[in-house]
């Protein structure tokens, strides 16, 4: 036999030997499963299960050594495979349980943190509330003071109002009294004027008619001495209320020239006006007009009628009319 033949024989023998010792698929899977389990977390977290897998794999290997193709070898290898998988599953369970435990711890930590933060917030809120209450007390004191001051001010205001009301009432009473007195004076003046001259009420005011023959001489505009006395009394009566406007109107009869009569009536009106001003009546409140013979009040045909037409009328304007003017 040459060397080549020897090599072929040895190779064939080796091939046969290898065929004879080929492990069943169950054992191959078991070995791989155990390898994975023994290099994974099962070493740390499932050592008991991994040990069982190792023992099961050892039994399978022993059986394989004794009888590689027997059903015992296959079944033992199958069981070893499952034991290795069981070790891995146990490791996974342990990991999941650890994860759950960690999650529970995290949950508790988070809860503790939240509680601590809530407590801190609560403390801060209480502190702020206490400060606010203190501030509120101060504010309440200030408010009380302010209220007291306001009450005092209100009281003063009320007193002032009462005083003002009393003053107003007093003033009103005084004014009423003054008005009554003025009215009484006016009534007295009117009564006095009624004794001195003809007095009548017209829409434009109270008209006091003074006879021209009593005041002036014929064709004269100078007051007669007796007329001055009469005008003094008229002036005194008018000065009782010197805030009224007066209109002095001169009138003449139809005798003679109308222009002359107009001029004469104006001069006579001015004479009376000047006399009243001289007696103290305000000049700005007295106006004088001459009407001549235009406004007769009686028949110029008779002597008596002409005497009545020669006259001076003092119109005391109503207060409302005076104001409007």
């Amino acid at each position: 036999m040459n060397a080549k033949s020897i090599f072929v024989i040895v190779a064939c023998a080796g091939l046969l030997a290898s065929c004879a010792t080929t492990a069943p698929i169950e054992l191959v899977n078991a070995r791989e499963a155990y390898r994975q389990a023994s290099t994974g977390p099962a070493v740390q977290v499932a050592p008991a299960q991994l040990h069982e897998a190792q023992q099961a794999l050892a039994l399978a290997e022993q059986s394989f050594q004794k009888n590689p193709k027997s059903y015992q070898t296959q079944d033992l290898a199958y069981v070893a495979h499952r034991k290795a998988q069981l070790a891995q599953a146990s490791a996974s369970i342990a990991q999941k349980q650890a994860s759950q435990a960690q999650a529970r711890r995290d949950y508790q930590d988070a809860q503790s943190k939240i509680i601590a933060e809530t407590k801190t917030d609560l403390d801060q809120t209480r502190t702020a509330l206490a400060a606010s209450e203190r501030s509120g007390e101060v504010s309440a004191e200030r408010l009380s003071s302010a209220q007291d001051a306001r009450i005092a001010a209100d009281r003063q205001t009320a007193q002032a109002q009462e005083a003002l009301a009393a003053s107003a009432a007093q003033q009103l009473a005084s004014e009423q009294e003054a008005r009554k007195a003025a009215e009484k004076r006016a009534a007295d003046a009117q009564a006095a004027l009624a004794k001195l001259a003809t007095v009548r009420e017209e829409p434009r005011g109270m008209v006091i008619t003074l006879s021209g023959s009593v005041l002036f001489a014929t064709n004269q505009s100078t007051l007669l001495p007796d007329a001055q006395l009469r005008l003094n009394k008229v002036a005194d009566a008018l000065l009782i209320n010197d805030q009224q406007n007066l209109i002095i109107e001169g009138h003449a009869d139809s005798s003679g020239d109308a222009g002359y009569n107009l001029d004469l009536s104006l001069r006579r009106a001015n004479t009376v006006r000047n006399y009243l001003v001289g007696r103290g009546y305000q000049a700005s409140r007295i106006r004088a007009y001459g009407f001549g013979e235009r406004n007769p009040i009686a028949d110029n045909a008779s002597a008596e009628g002409r005497a009545n037409n020669r006259r001076v009328e003092i119109v005391v304007e109503h207060e409302t009319l005076a104001t409007n003017k």
Partner: peptide, 11 residues
């Protein structure tokens, strides 16, 4: 293992 996984995820 499956129930542990579910509980762990829920936690």
């Amino acid at each position: 293992e499956d129930s542990e996984r579910s509980e762990a995820l829920a936690a």
